[in-house]
Write a protein that binds this DNA or RNA. Structure first.
Lengths: 140, 140
DNA sequence: TATTGTTATACTCTATAACTATA
DNA sequence: TATAGTTATAGAGTATAACAATA
């Protein structure tokens, strides 16, 4: 990405934030349809790639480690994840998706692929403005 | 915006979501530095444009009207906003920023303009991929 | 001593339902 | 009757501090 003025980037981020707001709302709605909160669904998304420790999960999700206990407790109670003591370090607990957990997050992602409403929700004027800003930040 | 395959849009949204995630984190950090939560700062951002009723605020922020009571209570207690009974309809309360409220949200937005780290945090490979996807969604 | 996960605590956000003042 | 705002209630997310088990 070539150097661009902060003002242009700020405008771009603001416009994208507007669009992404709708995207996040869609994600929350899709999660709610599965009886999950955004945090729970986000956690499943992270675990979809590979099992992870409580501490590392907290880091990835950007929250304090103490929060993960409650979030994982609720997911485990519903059978979507399971805790496994690490053989290498018995202080560590690796959290992994169960078959049910995989199905739950895949269903949400499938719903998201069907909506992809983020950019479509921008008005014509906003789309034009977005294209203009993008051509400035990513010139060709 | 011309028609584009859902798969391309989904990829684009995912990449932008990654970037915007950092943007939101920056916003939350800037708000926290001012002793405000994200919800409180977002509320001030909305009010920065013009005063608004409790109900309308809830609609804009995408939450239930009952939530606004507590959020506005806390902002009012800190002298950042004030409630005013609407002369036209005495059921309605218009919420407006105080001078302190204006300064608070302007400080946060100023900090954000200084960071604009959203796009910059993408790796080289991600930026290249982003440019490619954008040229597909916004052909020139 | 340092680190991992948990617990205890407190605050905020959030939705639902019931209530009041007004229209 | 309908609407705007509030209150009561409950669940979830969040951070801080203190703790036990393990390294």
């Amino acid at each position: 990405m070539p150097p661009t003025s902060p003002a242009v980037k700020a405008q771009l981020m603001e416009l994208l934030a507007h669009s992404l707001g709708a995207h996040y709302a869609d994600f929350a709605t899709a999660a709610a349809a599965a009886g999950l909160t955004s945090s729970q669904a986000k956690t499943l998304t992270v675990l979809r790639r590979s099992p992870d420790s409580m501490r590392s999960l907290a880091g990835t999700l950007g929250c304090d480690a103490s929060n993960m206990t409650g979030v994982i407790d609720r997911l485990e109670k519903r059978g979507l994840v399971r805790r496994e003591v690490s053989p290498a370090d018995r202080r560590v607990k690796n959290v992994a998706l169960t078959e049910e957990g995989i199905q739950a997050i895949d269903a949400i992602r499938s719903t998201m692929n069907g909506t992809h409403a983020g950019l479509d929700r921008l008005s014509e004027a906003e789309q034009t403005e977005l294209a203009r800003l993008l051509s400035t930040v990513f010139p060709r």
